[in-house]
Design a protein around this nucleic acid. Structure first.
Lengths: 206, 206
DNA sequence: GCCATAACTCTACGGGTGGGGAATTCCTCA
DNA sequence: TGAGGAATTCCCCACCCGTAGAGTTATGGC
């Protein structure tokens, strides 16, 4: 019917720089964020990310150097994350537990932050390298923003214990999608998990 | 000095069946268990497993059909795991919390079961497929062995909440190796986490 | 208007991936 | 003793991977 061959092996895109502000860099970051979230660091290939962004893979190299650079850039873009939790470590200590869980779960529900958290978990459980980056980027912030001075002290241990519970819920609810946990409402979870966090943060003997 | 060329490009191994009982199948299962543990389902390649087992990759295909079959065989080999936890759900309910955490952490310390748990977590956080297998194999057992009748009932929810905390500690301590948690002793962890489990299992409002 | 530089593409290389076919050797059972 | 099958190897295929180089087009400062 038309003149174009319908068996075109591949549609060549125009070469060279685009006119105006193309926003390509951000498109790549968005695609990377989503794919790292869906498949983890190893599972998300540079090529797949480029395709998702509608761009040649070599552009990623141009902008970010290599895959590591891209991952780092993807994470660094939204490092507000720890701040939003740490701020609740201050406020009224008596109600911190519920407030923290509430804020944390809300972050997981937001379409902007969720992929980043997902990527962090999926990557950290698989690649040692990703764990390193996680410690570098998040660790420092949590510590400074929550006013912890001694890295080996009791306060740090309390926060870490609370962290294990929050990590566990997130993995169960959002990654593994364990039925009973995934089925609970936001409010129910806060009600159940909040006291646990509270106990870790200011319980008696630790 | 010798007659053999020291630049032999690769040492060809003899083809054909070996004499006697070679135990190759088990060697493959062992190597697979360790590699799945270290790198997760996707990260552990059939070739790497074969090499670790000192065997040609095609043998894996011969014995297990494909990579999935190998993974399934690796996991199925040691499904005693859930039983060992579930049995503590019975016994004296007043002390269940500490006993469960204690038994659970001990499993993580044993060189036999640890790789399986590791492989489970590393794979489940990355591949949907692995999650399916996990539910099929473990889910049923946990439910039956802990005497849960209603899959959506309160009892199930309690066990699941406890599960999130245990999952969280394991990931933090053994996978991510979060410093404060990794540094705590077995006893300290039992003392801190035990009460949380206890509260989930028989706390007031759930 | 010119030119360095930034944005963008194509093609290619070396290597790893899971899977399958064919050949060889040994074991078991009639 | 002979036949069939199991265990084991090698080689091959088609595909995906991260990265690199070289070429093309627009932008922005002079």
């Amino acid at each position: 019917m038309a003149e174009q061959p319908n068996l075109a092996p591949r549609a060549k895109r125009p070469t060279g720089r685009r006119a105006g502000d193309s926003g390509t860099r951000d498109a790549i970051l968005d695609a990377a964020r989503d794919l790292f979230a869906a498949r983890g660091y190893d599972g998300a290939s540079v090529r797949a990310i480029a395709t998702a962004a509608g761009v040649d893979p070599a552009l990623i190299r141009h902008f970010f150097g290599d895959k590591d650079g891209l991952f780092a850039a993807t994470m660094a873009d939204r490092t507000v994350i720890p701040a939003r939790i740490a701020e609740h470590l201050q406020g009224d200590p008596a109600t911190a537990g519920n407030r923290i869980v509430d804020a944390y779960l809300r972050m997981w529900e937001e379409p902007e932050t969720r992929p980043v958290l997902m990527a962090l978990i999926r990557s950290a459980t698989t690649s040692e390298q990703a764990v390193g980056m996680l410690f570098d980027v998040l660790g420092g912030r949590i510590r400074e923003q929550s006013g912890i001075t001694d890295p080996d002290g009791e306060r740090m241990r309390r926060v870490a214990l609370a962290g294990t519970q929050m990590l566990g819920v997130a993995v169960a609810r959002y990654v593994i999608k364990l039925p009973p946990i995934a089925a609970m409402t936001h409010a129910e979870l806060v009600e159940q998990i909040g006291p646990t966090i509270q106990r870790y943060l200011d319980g008696e003997n630790i």
